[in-house]
Design a protein around this nucleic acid. Structure first.
Lengths: 115, 115
DNA sequence: GCATCTTATCGTTCTTCGTCGATGAAGACG
DNA sequence: CGTCTTCATCGACGAAGAACGATAAGATGC
């Protein structure tokens, strides 16, 4: 049985909770930490992350309404976060549903904690 | 040339261990997190931080010897970290002794943890 | 004094970032 | 079919970043 349009279901896959075994030091870790940090090195992107964390139900372009930026600019910031692996965007009809990638966020916390 | 490390005098003040009561959310926290993250958003600066954390005894320009970068470039990176408040540089005769600012590092961890 | 050592800063060049408006692509809905 | 709506991408432009060599500033030592 198929409903025509599921209202706002969780497009975000559940967190797999797997433990990350990669080291938190060394050249690779340095590059990774720098890359992740650069991605959140802008206030707008921090705000986007917070929005997505707050509503664990994932959100499409309502983010644009919450930020004082043009739609294209927000889209650029979303791309930066997505390229860094911090968020994911799933196409849902004409919209795109963004959600955080819990594994990457945990990885970032581990790397920062390793300092 | 290469001179040995001067006698270990602690230029770094001992960690005051004070608890930071500022919130980890809100516009100010967003700006602060973005600013700190941008500062460590470069592999060379991550390496510098690690060097300073590893030797809790503070280090001057030996950092230059550990990085494959020109002295002026390393100085620039040190300035970025210092402007962000993550490190401190105390003049010690003809040299400058850099050390991490534990409070800022703790603050960064708290902000990241607040995500 | 002068020479030396260490670090910061200046000036330059090149690249990347941030922002916007405009345009394009893909579905949804008449 | 056409028309919205939603979002990504393009092009442009100014601002900021990253790297270097050269130079200046400040302390030490002769």
């Amino acid at each position: 049985m198929k409903t025509t349009t599921p209202p706002l279901e969780s497009c975000c896959a559940p967190d797999d909770e797997r433990v990350d075994l990669r080291p938190v030091e060394g050249d690779d870790a340095d590059e990774e930490l720098a890359s992740l940090s650069k991605a959140i090195g802008h206030p707008a992107r921090v705000k986007i992350l917070r929005i997505l964390v707050r509503r664990n139900s994932c959100i499409c372009g309502d983010i644009v309404d919450e930020l004082p930026l043009a739609q294209s600019t927000v889209s650029q910031h979303l791309k930066v976060l997505k390229d860094a692996g911090l968020i994911r965007g799933d196409v849902d009809g004409p919209r795109v549903c963004y959600c955080i990638e819990p594994r990457s966020l945990r990885r970032l916390k581990a790397l920062i904690g390793g300092l």
